[in-house]
Nucleic acid binder design. Structure first.
Lengths: 199, 199
DNA sequence: GTCTCACGTGAGAAACTTCTCATATTCGAT
DNA sequence: ATCGAATATGAGAAGTTTCTCACGTGAGAC
């Protein structure tokens, strides 16, 4: 975590440093990102950086926690979330919140994608499998009889997760298309792709 | 492409250099990979490296083409591939070939995954979207009436692609589990996850 | 005023990276 | 044996990177 000296800084300066971190970590993966760029954009000298943070990991963690807080905030503001909704309904709603979050700062989405595709030790251990949340919901719905018993929760979690992030990568700035694709994707997961005339 | 001096080398030396490249590029993404490691493992001096290759990109391309050739070779040896098979049947068969290829050298699979998640300019332009092949098959099957007309080919291609690579990452060295998961995944794509009692 | 202490600062250390180049060596043709 | 072209070689150039450290500065306490 950042040192006390960082917390004592003016809001304006803290914001400048945070913005510079977001800017750099949204264009390059952790190991490729350069502190050089961050201190240049934040307009602080090298020495100051190490007054505020212990190292590169430190500022990354700080930034990561900040943007995660923002996401949770938006999620908690969303009042139409009902614990009893089924998996797919909840996916829709969570996606809506995530979209709002990513729209506030498109960089957040890029950071998430870079984290998802980073195999370095530091990031891997940090990446608390967001998949877990999905898996719990899937298991619940299997028990409730909404989802087939034969289905593997891991696989569905993968499908949903991929669906959402791939759409962010591709149609992230076309809201209508984005939600339509998410909807289509969830329908495939629901009903499959086979055209049936079992009538 | 490598220089003539490289092609004139003994098979043993060429192999050593190829192996060193595979080893390095299977653990680090292109921009993170170090030529230092490659020349160390290949046991050649710095000067020699630049006798054989023009630069880092050069040796990567050489390695990439070599392993791609090996994959095509295995695919072409597989004689049970029938052009008229439907999408999912073909997926099964191609996966079988890919599995055999990745089993020969597990590093090949890691290289593929790193390429898939590399957004650097050099790799992006090299990565001929393997998705295209899937999309063509999907469109064909929609026309043949096997797949619902309402379904988006892009989404299915994503699902299939993810399914296969995620399984390589996770269950790649447990053959039975691997093929079972692939099969389960294809069944979800086929029929969906909803338990129906429409009888 | 002066002492103190927290914070600001940039030069440069140390460890990497890719790539070059002058020189040494090898080897086949004459 | 001698020459010449192809190849081998490692020191080090020129660029990164992260991180340290000796010193400067400025505000509040006495």
């Amino acid at each position: 975590m950042p040192k006390d000296t960082f917390n004592n800084l003016s809001e304006e300066k803290k914001q400048r440093i945070f913005d510079a971190a977001v800017r750099e970590f949204s264009t390059r993966r952790f190991s490729e990102a350069s502190l050089n760029q961050i201190i240049k954009n934040a307009k602080i000298p090298w020495g100051s950086f190490y007054q505020y943070f212990n190292n590169k990991e430190d500022i990354f963690l700080f930034m990561y926690e900040e943007i995660y807080k923002e996401k949770l905030e938006i999620l908690s503001r969303q009042n139409d979330i009902n614990q009893d909704d089924d998996l797919l309904k909840l996916c829709e709603k969570v996606t809506k919140a995530t979209y709002e979050w990513a729209r506030k700062k498109p960089e957040y989405c890029k950071i998430s994608i870079l984290i998802e595709t980073d195999n370095s030790k530091f990031i891997t251990q940090l990446r608390d499998s967001s998949l877990e949340v999905f898996k719990i919901l899937i298991k619940r719905d299997i028990e409730r009889g909404i989802i087939k018993k034969t289905v593997d929760p891991d696989l569905i979690a993968d499908f949903i997760y991929t669906l959402i992030w791939k759409q962010f990568m591709r149609t992230g700035n076309n809201e209508k298309l984005f939600f339509q694709k998410i909807n289509d994707g969830l329908n495939i997961i629901k009903d499959g792709i086979i055209s049936i005339n079992k009538s």
